[in-house]
Design a protein around this nucleic acid. Structure first.
Length: 492
RNA sequence: CGGAGUGUAGCUCAGCCUGGUAGAGUGCUUGCUUCGGGAGCAAGAGGCCGCGGGUUCGAGUCCCGCCACUCCGACCA
């Protein structure tokens, strides 16, 4: 039996329930309140609305620049992969077989009941799968493109959609179709390939921490958690406010697995044919879910300035219609000024009441709000509020200095979000000494990650039992502990 | 795919047990007063009550079947 509808305006927080009361429901309501995405009428799929998509566009813009600095080139490969391609790599297909969408026909026709259905006569001689990832089809191209050691390294990336028929979808975190980038690199030697896989993980760490303001733990996956076909999977793990981990990006050293199955060979300087070594690395729209669960509060979204759809919301407060033209003109001037300084701005020109304009900007998590009314014009000062500080952090800034002050506020907010999230991350990880500690921790329904000696976990039946019982997994072997320690947590 | 739950106004839900004219809050529209951390009054629009069948004079309500979604697991970027 559900509770009676709550009056939002009487609620203490803009989002109900609060994070404390019901984290999963809070998460969905933040997305709704910020107008970022909604469930599609298609099972397991989401509709990313303009405000949410804008975050993805910013992620693309910045990350694309970063990978191009690594001499990666963008390209595009087909959505459909012939079944025979993916069947070449046994371990790989083993990993993805259960979640593949399969295309078997190329035409619809009316059946005997008069319903539209796949035309039996149009059955494909070879079924296609909708890519769950593109190692196999890109491998086919690499086979053609790599002839000589001079063709290596070859570094390709594509921004695209993929499909994985997951059992339990959640907006942004796990949807049947999702957007991502997948990078595929090929090298002449094993050393170069491993160095590259680690390098690309470092690029992810840099991006996720410095743009998304989400601190991560970088490390290796345990063998059981590796990407199907990889000899090593590197990961950056973030922790959400409810203490669950989120794998935010992965970089795989594929060894010669795919070079063998796609026959990626080159003629080396010594005149012999050699197999190449490949890597692949990906980051998806899931990171947007991470952003929400790391930064959001009980009033809604908080956007890190560097990926915010707009960094500043100008809120014209019109009390007297006679002032309206004047105030809007003033706002227009400020907007122009800020835009000329590369600050993204949106002015709320609606005739909503001032408090409604303010709450809309709060729920969307716009980093800086500028209140502009008759008062500001008279005083020559603007009222500036940082989303993460709230009303107690309101400051007045002289109009002449506003662009500089706002730029500084955005920069500081970006730093503060990361610093605060890092402090929380540290408090969420507890060092423990035994499997009994692990069992006690999760049995007590504590939320967070545990760090312990990997030797205690590896091959342990007791750990397998804990894993089963409490739905926890090994998240990674952090680089900082040289593979000696493992992080254990529940995960999204 | 296992377990639990929910489908009624744009949204959140009540009504179902005990069959009898379709409800509330919020949102929306209009008007007036308001307006700087969720305003007030008044009027108004808005529903194949998830789909199909059955019982009945009569079904949102009872019975059978189906579908969809949400949550908890298993799977996973």
């Amino acid at each position: 039996m559900a509770e009676p509808a709550k009056n939002l305006k009487n609620a203490k927080t803009a989002i109900t329930p609060t994070r404390e009361e019901n984290f999963p429901e809070w998460y969905q309501n933040v997305i709704k309140a910020a107008d970022m995405a909604e469930n599609a009428p298609v099972r397991g799929c989401m509709i990313i609305k303009p405000y949410g998509f804008s975050v993805w566009e910013n992620i693309q813009k910045h990350f694309d620049r970063m990978i191009k600095a690594e001499e990666v080139q963008n390209a595009y490969f087909p959505l459909l992969i012939p079944l025979s391609y993916i069947a070449r790599e046994a371990e790989h297909i083993e990993g993805f077989a259960k979640e593949c969408a399969v295309v078997t026909h190329h035409r619809l026709s009316k059946n005997e009941k008069g319903e539209l259905a796949a035309d039996p006569a149009s059955i494909l001689t070879e079924p296609m799968i909708i890519r769950p990832t593109s190692e196999t089809i890109i491998g086919e191209s690499m086979h053609n493109w790599v002839q000589s050691y001079r063709d290596l390294p070859l570094k390709l990336n594509q921004w695209c959609n993929v499909m994985r028929w997951e059992m339990r979808p959640r907006v942004f975190l796990r949807t049947t179709e999702f957007l991502w980038q997948e990078g595929h690199n090929a090298f002449a030697t094993a050393e170069e390939a491993d160095r590259d896989a680690r390098r690309m993980l470092e690029v992810y760490r840099d991006f996720i921490e410095n743009y998304l303001a989400v601190p991560v733990i970088a490390g290796s996956k345990t063998p059981e958690e590796r990407f199907p076909g990889a000899i090593e999977t590197y990961t950056v793990e973030a922790f959400m406010q409810d203490g669950k981990a989120l794998q935010s990006a992965t970089s795989h050293n594929l060894g010669q697995t795919f070079a063998k199955s796609s026959d990626i060979k080159y003629l080396d300087k010594d005149g012999t044919q050699k197999l190449a070594w490949t890597t692949s690395w990906g980051m998806s729209t899931r990171t947007i879910g991470g952003l929400i669960m790391v930064h959001g509060d009980d009033d809604g979204m908080i956007m890190p300035p560097r990926v915010a759809p707009h960094q500043v919301a100008i809120l014209p407060f019109v009390k007297d219609d006679a002032d309206k033209a004047n105030i809007l003109e003033f706002c227009e001037k400020i907007q122009k000024e800020l835009r000329s300084k590369d600050i993204s701005v949106q002015t709320d020109k609606s005739d909503a009441r001032s408090s409604d304009k303010m709450w809309a900007a709060i729920k969307k998590g716009v980093p800086v709000r500028l209140e502009v009314g008759a008062r500001e014009i008279a005083e020559g000062q603007l009222t500036l509020t940082r989303r993460d500080l709230g009303k107690d952090g309101k400051v007045k800034v002289p109009v002449a200095e506003c662009a500089a002050k706002i730029a500084a506020a955005l920069e500081q907010m970006q730093k503060d979000l990361l610093a605060n999230a890092r402090k929380r991350l540290q408090s969420q990880i507890t060092d423990v000494k035994s499997l009994k500690d692990v069992r006690d921790y999760f049995a007590a329904e504590k939320q967070g990650g545990l760090k312990l000696d990997y030797s205690l976990v590896k091959g342990s039946e007791e750990f397998a039992a804990i894993k089963q019982e409490y739905a926890v997994t090994t998240r990674c072997l952090p680089f900082e502990d040289n593979g000696q320690k493992v992080i254990v947590a529940k995960a999204y």
